[in-house]
């Protein structure tokens, strides 16, 4: 009645309709996202690399291939060098402070029971608050005569500087705001890391004679937090490389380029002076730093050990 073994050809035929259906389903599900990834991620990345080799100006009808001219101009430009330098200073101030204070806050908050939720909420609040609005608040709070900071200093007999208009201070002022804004985020990441440490380890350490808090931290907490810390450091570095909002609204890179940072340079060259090709070259430098950091992060993640 039926053939003993259907030939493979027949099976192939039988599967054709199912194959088609499954391919269509995959296309319907992954297609839109894939198309958007191409339009908003892949194509722009290729474009930005190509644009950085041209003299394109926004709105211009034509563009010319200029090779590495934008890059040589950029590295010869005092403003750009200042911008890169400022960004690196900003990052190197924000990262240790924000990570260190975040870790400290996490350890202190987790060390006791009382007011734990209160502290966590308060420290996390700046992470949630719209940075641009808070930048405006800070600008007012740092006003040399009317601001909270200098009024408070005056009440203890210190004459505060002009935080945002003194070119020796402005970058550190911005870094301070950056730290204020990001400590809570790092704190919460560290808290998650702390909670992941098995309680047994502390008990084992106690049995082994580790008695004071510092020794506990050194023998158990810190080694276990190591991977989280590396991760937090890299994330903070990537985020602080992206400093823009505070600069754009509070200082516009001034005074005298003292607070010029990479993204602000890119923004003003690209969208205020419409030197798109040049801005693209700045973007490439920014991207190089961010990608290097992200690669570092991936590398750390791959090597993540200890109960990760």
């Amino acid at each position: 009645m039926t053939p003993l073994v259907k030939p493979a050809q027949d099976l192939h035929h039988a599967y054709r309709r199912r194959d088609l259906r499954e391919a269509l389903a995959a296309l319907a599900l992954a297609g839109p996202a894939s198309a958007l990834i191409f339009v908003f991620l892949i194509a722009p990345l290729v474009c930005i690399a190509l644009l950085s080799l041209t003299d394109y100006q926004l709105g211009a009808k034509a563009l010319r291939f200029v090779g590495l001219h934008n890059y040589s101009e950029m590295f010869a430009d005092r403003v750009f060098r200042r911008s890169l330098e400022n960004t690196l200073i900003y990052v190197s101030v924000v990262v240790p402070l924000s990570v260190g204070l975040g870790l400290g806050a996490a350890l202190l908050i987790e060390a006791g029971e009382s007011l734990r939720a209160f502290y966590r909420t308060v420290y996390f609040l700046p992470v949630m608050a719209t940075l641009i609005a808070m930048a405006i608040v800070w600008e007012f709070a740092l006003h040399p005569k009317l601001g909270l900071v200098n009024l408070a200093l005056k009440s203890v007999g210190i004459a505060g500087p002009d935080w945002l208009h003194d070119r020796h201070i402005v970058l550190y002022t911005l870094a301070g705001i950056g730290v204020w804004q990001s400590v809570g985020f790092n704190m919460v990441l560290f808290m998650a890391g702390l909670q992941a440490i098995p309680r047994d380890l502390y008990e084992a350490a106690a049995v082994d004679g580790v008695s004071n808090a510092w020794d506990r931290f050194r023998t158990v907490t810190w080694p276990m937090l190591g991977p989280v810390s590396l991760f937090v450091i890299v994330i903070t570095a990537i985020r602080s490389f992206q400093v823009f909002d505070t600069v754009q609204v509070m200082t516009k890179g001034g005074p005298n380029r003292a607070s010029e940072v990479l993204l602000y340079t890119m923004y003003s060259e690209g969208f205020e002076f419409f030197r798109t090709g040049y801005a693209a070259a700045v973007t490439m430098v920014f991207l190089a730093f961010v990608l290097a950091l992200a690669a570092l992060k991936t590398w750390f993640l791959d090597r993540r050990v200890h109960y990760a």
Partner: peptide, 19 residues
Amino acid sequence: ERQDAGSVEIDGRPVDALR
């Protein structure tokens, strides 16, 4: 799952092409 060879019939009807 799909077989690499052979067939399955239910009530005399091959079902290999069916979901």
